[in-house]
Amino acid sequence: MLLAASHGAAAQGAGGGEIRLLMLGDSITAGFGLARSEGPPARIQALLREKGRNVRVIDAGVSGDTTAGGRARLAWALADRPHAVIVALGGNDGLRGLTPAQMKANLEDILDRLGQRNIPVLLAGMVAPPNLGRDYGEEFSAVFETLARERPNVVFYPFLLDGVAGNPALNQADRIHPTAEGADLIARRMLPFIKTLLDRVAIPAAG
């Protein structure tokens, strides 16, 4: 049984049940090269629990996954019956030079299917590698901005790697995957947006 909650944080602090937050992503979500406890999902969960939020973050990150891969496995990922979802895909579309139109169609389908289930969503944006050119980069970034504008109920975090991308001290030797410190910074910067997302969740009854 779900209890309607207009103030998610208050309900959680008053003995609400556990919230399941799914993070659907690629190797960044999966914490490539890191211990499981160091990846973004684990760090987000730890930070939320420090704030008194009874949240379990489900790691649905698959290394190498594109938006098409995330779209194909969405039904499987939803088997855990999450109360909210973070969609953090697109990086591999850019690395492979896939068309922004393809990426947009895949993300639209993911967001639409989540919307049909009334699952609150946070969409994390991504930027394309600079070697693909300015026009491609602008079209790529515009996909996320357009989706967020067309879906005002979606919480939008403009850039998943904000503050981390391009910083050698926060990335592994491949310059793509964050270090443990980088993953922690991702979690901390996303936290205010995730709190907004969680405040839209109907709190499960405790017990």
Rank of each mutant, 00 (worst) to 15 (best):
L21V: 03
A142H: 11
R81T: 10
L21D: 06
M23R: 13
L111M: 09
A206Y: 05
V55W: 07
L48G: 00
A148Y: 00
P178S: 13
A30I: 02
I203M: 07
D135L: 09
H7A: 14
G33A: 09
A105N: 08
D199F: 02
N153C: 10
A88K: 01
G97E: 15
H177P: 15
A180M: 08
P129E: 09
L95R: 09
A84S: 10
G52L: 07
S63R: 12
G91H: 08
D199R: 03
A128I: 06
V201C: 10
G90H: 11
G52Q: 11
F193T: 05
V143P: 10
R81I: 02
A101G: 06
A124W: 07
G69W: 04
N118F: 00
V143W: 02
A68M: 05
I194L: 11
L78H: 08
G13C: 02
T99F: 05
D135F: 04
A124I: 08
L197V: 10
A165H: 05
P129H: 08
P82R: 00
Y157H: 13
E138Q: 10
L21Y: 11
G182L: 08
L197P: 12
S27D: 10
A128S: 07
L78Q: 08
V127N: 09
A79S: 13
A169M: 07
A60T: 02
R53W: 14
K51P: 03
G125R: 01
M23E: 09
G94M: 01
P152H: 10
D135I: 10
A10V: 09
L78K: 05
G15A: 07
L98T: 01
V57Q: 04
G115S: 14
G39H: 03
P129M: 03
S37Q: 14
L160C: 04
A11S: 09
A142L: 13
L122P: 06
D26T: 04
P192D: 02
L185A: 05
I119F: 00
L191V: 08
V155S: 04
E138R: 06
R113Q: 15
G137M: 01
A46V: 12
E38L: 03
V87M: 03
Q102P: 00
G166R: 10
I28P: 04
E50Q: 11
A173W: 07
I19G: 01
A4N: 12
R134W: 02
I44D: 00
T146W: 00
V55H: 06
G182K: 03
R151I: 10
E108Y: 04
N131K: 02
W76A: 13
G166I: 09
L185G: 06
A4R: 14
M1D: 14
D174E: 04
G91I: 01
H83S: 08
I194G: 12
A205T: 01
I176L: 15
E18I: 03
P158C: 12
R188I: 15
L34D: 13
A88P: 03
G25W: 07
P178E: 13
L48P: 01
V87W: 00
P82T: 01
A14E: 15
L78T: 06
V62Y: 09
R81L: 06
M126S: 11
A124C: 15
D135K: 06
D162P: 00
P192S: 01
A30E: 08
L95F: 12
G91V: 05
R36F: 01
A30V: 03
A77W: 02
I203R: 08
A9Q: 14
D135C: 02
R134E: 15
G69A: 08
T146C: 13
D59N: 15
